[in-house]
Design a protein around this nucleic acid. Structure first.
Ligand SMILES: [Zn+2]
Ligand SMILES: [Zn+2]
Ligand SMILES: [Zn+2]
Ligand SMILES: [Zn+2]
Lengths: 145, 145
DNA sequence: AATCAGAATGAGAATTGTTTTCAACAGCTA
DNA sequence: TAGCTGTTGAAAACAATTCTCATTCTGATT
């Protein structure tokens, strides 16, 4: 997605929450976009120099509420963030139980469709309204083996 | 699984880690077993009266390291615990984004097998050693709708 | 351009789930 | 019983995250 188009959509999403797309928030989005993989807050603070820690935490909450970014929680100490699937593509996570790193991956369309079907059936049975599914592969990454 | 058999296996697992199966740890296992669903530490402290908070936290770590219990982490404030799949059965989680409650569910064997196949293929491609997969359905539970 | 009201920021303090400390205790062995 | 080692409980420490508040920015209005 082009930067201009992305910024337009994010502006719209934020305005729906009566929030502005400020310089600090743009810097956050730029960092997440540049990384292309889930990053921790310390990584964000290191990468984008000049951002205050309190503002980063606060703005990630705002961006998450607006649906711009997704918070990923693992057993690691730090939460991780990445751009929401709406701006990337539907995908899942490899979580390394040794180093804590999180890597995106995708299932092929057939496997994804089969999964969705099975999950919708379950949800219907128990009266659960589905917002999303999360699928993580936990193990050891190539670097840690 | 019978209580005696369960206790024997847990004793073995703990002894492998040079840990004892003490009264407090037995109380924790009994509580998790009685609940049959993932519970938070506050819920455990309420349910099993007399356990010290520090011991509960500490013993849950010990039990997790021994493979007796599983820690479930969500966006909620508290971690949740349940008996490890070895003592129950392989399953997944419905996570209510409104009340934070976590409910177990299972896929049918065919869907589970198809998923495993797709995941193993992915893992092999990127040199990832799989320990487990985690599949959560995020949405709104029947009570919160 | 100047003004003003509301929103956002930054530095640090406060909060809070969790971990650690340490003195007292329990279980085991000889 | 005495001694050794792992466990417990109460409270302190810890750390990721959230909150406070004085200052700065934004953008609409005059
Ligand atoms: Zn991702
Ligand atoms: Zn998927
Ligand atoms: Zn479960
Ligand atoms: Zn499964």
């Amino acid at each position: 997605m082009a930067t201009d188009e992305l910024d337009d959509e994010i502006t719209t999403l934020l305005h729906q929450e009566d929030q502005r797309y400020t310089k600090g928030r743009r810097a956050l989005v730029a960092t997440l976009r540049a990384e292309g993989q889930p990053v921790t807050i310390p990584q964000i603070l290191d990468a984008s120099d000049g951002l205050a820690q309190s503002s980063v935490y606060r703005n990630l909450v705002v961006l998450e509420e607006a649906g711009v970014v997704t918070r990923i929680v693992t057993n690691d100490d730090f939460a991780r963030y990445e751009l929401a699937e709406q701006f990337t593509h539907h995908h899942h996570h490899l979580i390394c139980s040794s180093c804590g790193d999180v890597i995106d991956f995708s299932l092929d369309d057939q496997a994804e469709a089969g999964l969705d079907e099975a999950l919708n059936e379950i949800a219907e049975q128990v009266g659960f309204t589905v917002e999303a599914h999360r699928l993580d592969l936990v193990g050891t990454c190539a670097d840690c083996d």
